[in-house]
Amino acid sequence: MKAQHLKIKEYCKISNNRVLLNDQLLYEDQGSDFTTFIKLAYKKMDTNYPKFFKMDDLSKLGFLASDILLKPMTQDAEITKNIALVFSNSASSLQTDRKHQESIVDKENYFPSPAVFVYTLPNICLGEISIKHRLYSENSFFIFNHFNAKYLHDYASSLIESEKADEVLCGWINCDVEDYEAFLYLVSKKGSIEHNKEEIIKLYTTK
């Protein structure tokens, strides 16, 4: 199987108010809530993309983690990159769904907004990333109760082996009532980490 030759090139984690790139700490701010933390992290990373502030929390989280990995690869506007996006989580877009639901529950206080409603789909985050990095590529958003390394591994391998994508940005982006978590990794033909289920779980669980 060609799958054995695929590698993990880089990975990025945003959780517990820390931003890590390949286990190198890029930013930490233990005192802030998510809204403040993600804004400060955005500034620290020189993201410079004003549309960021219109996004919901899930899109902000996915966008920032992706941007850290993709920015060095997509800076040259002339070269189109075929990088697929395969994201997963357990809460879908529920945080924004709850917000839209609140706006329609009371007939006397009825104010549904298209700016909120559009984010009641988890794949909007993939659209935001595709726009920023000019990715005319495969997008898929899966929902699992828990991180599922086996399915992500098989799906990413299939996209590269069938030549639907050159590389796959893969992982877990979740926002829920209590917590948030981002773990993204780039599957490629080049890299130093083996692309297999065990390595993916190891990277995901190492704090």
Partner: peptide, 11 residues
């Protein structure tokens, strides 16, 4: 089969 993004607008 194939799936491609517009990389244009979210809505």
């Amino acid at each position: 089969e194939a799936s491609c993004n517009d990389a244009n607008h979210i809505s």
